Amino acid sequence: MPQQVQGVIARSKGAPVELVTVNVPDAGPGEAVVRILACGVCHTDLHYREGGIGDDYPYLLGHEAAGIVEQVGDDVRDLAPGDYVILNWRAVCGTCRACRRGRPWYCFNTFNATQKMTLEDGTELSPALGIGAFMDKTLVAAGQCTKVDERARPAAAGLLGCGVMAGLGAAINTGNVGRGDSVAVIGCGGVGSAAIAGARLAGASKIIAVDVDERKLAVARELGATDAINAREGDPVAQIQALTGGFGADVVIDAVGRPETWLQAFYGRDLAGTVVLVGVPTPEMTLELPLLDVFGRGGSLKSSWYGDCLPDRDFPMLIDLYLQGRLPLDAFVTEEIGIGDIEAAFDKMHAGDVLRSVVILDGPDSDSGSTNPLEAHEGEQVSA
Score class of each variant (00 low, 15 high):
Ala15Gln: 15
Glu336Asp: 00
Asp136Ile: 00
Gln144Leu: 07
Asp341Tyr: 04
Val17Thr: 13
Pro290Cys: 01
Met349Asn: 10
Glu233Gly: 05
Thr146Glu: 12
Phe346Cys: 08
Asp362Met: 01
Gln115Tyr: 00
Glu335Val: 07
Pro25Gly: 12
Pro2Asn: 13
Gln241Ile: 03
Asp293Val: 06
Asn112Trp: 07
Glu343Arg: 07
Leu291Cys: 05
Asp45Met: 05
Ala220Met: 00
Asp26Val: 03
Gly161Ser: 08
His43Phe: 12
Gly30Glu: 04
Leu37Gly: 06
Asp78Cys: 02
Tyr57Glu: 10
Asp45Leu: 08
Arg313Pro: 04
Val24Asn: 11
Ala197Ser: 13
Arg11Met: 07
Val24Gln: 12
Tyr106Leu: 15
Leu310Ile: 14
Ser193Val: 00
Gly161Asp: 05
Val85Asn: 04
Thr114Ser: 09
Trp262Asp: 02
Asp83Pro: 04
Asp270Trp: 02
Arg326Met: 09
Phe266Met: 14
Pro311Glu: 08
Asn88Ile: 01
Leu277Gly: 09
Asp353Gly: 06
Thr261Ala: 02
Asp367Asn: 12
Glu343Trp: 09
Pro2Leu: 07
Gly51Val: 01
Asp312Gly: 10
Cys107Tyr: 11
Phe346Ile: 06
Ala133Trp: 02
Cys39Leu: 13
Ile68Cys: 01
Ile9Tyr: 05
Gly296Tyr: 10
His43Met: 04
Thr334Arg: 06
Lys348Tyr: 10
Asn173His: 14
Leu301Gln: 13
Gly163Cys: 15
Arg356Asn: 03
Leu323Tyr: 07
Ser193Ile: 01
Arg232Glu: 12
Gly187Ile: 11
Gln6His: 11
Leu201Gln: 08
Gly54Trp: 01
Ala272Ile: 15
Asp56Glu: 14
Trp262Lys: 04
Ala80Met: 02
Pro236His: 07
Leu263Asn: 06
Leu318Ser: 01
Ala345Leu: 02
Leu374Gly: 02
Thr282His: 13
Gly279Asp: 02
Ala331Cys: 11
Leu60Ser: 08
Leu243Glu: 12
Cys93Lys: 00
Asp347Gln: 15
Glu378Gly: 13
Val358Thr: 09
Arg151Lys: 14
Val85Asp: 01
Gly192Phe: 12
Val92Gln: 08
Thr244His: 10
Asp250Cys: 03
Leu287Asn: 00
Ile319Glu: 05
Ala195Asp: 04
His63Arg: 12
Gly352Ser: 02
Ala184Gln: 07
Glu288Val: 03
Asp254Thr: 06
Thr174Ala: 12
Asp227Met: 11
Gly307Ser: 12
Tyr322Met: 06
Lys13Glu: 15
Ala384Tyr: 08
Thr114Ile: 01
Lys13Phe: 00
Thr44Cys: 07
Met349Gly: 07
Asp367Ala: 02
Asp270Pro: 00
Ser368Met: 03
Lys116Glu: 03
Pro29Val: 08
Val275Tyr: 01
Leu243Ile: 12
Ala152Ser: 10
Leu223Tyr: 08
Met1Cys: 03
Gly198Ile: 02
Ala195Tyr: 08
Glu18Cys: 05
Thr282Tyr: 14
Val275Phe: 09
Thr286Glu: 14
Pro283Ala: 11
Ala27Thr: 09
Glu233Thr: 08
Val275Gly: 03
Tyr322Trp: 06
Gln144Pro: 05
Leu217Ser: 05
Trp305Glu: 12
Val191Asp: 03
Pro259Ala: 04
Leu355Asn: 11
Asp75Ile: 07
Cys93Val: 02
Asp235Cys: 10
Thr174Glu: 09
Gln3Lys: 15
Glu375Asp: 07
Trp262Glu: 08
Thr110Leu: 00
Gly161Leu: 06
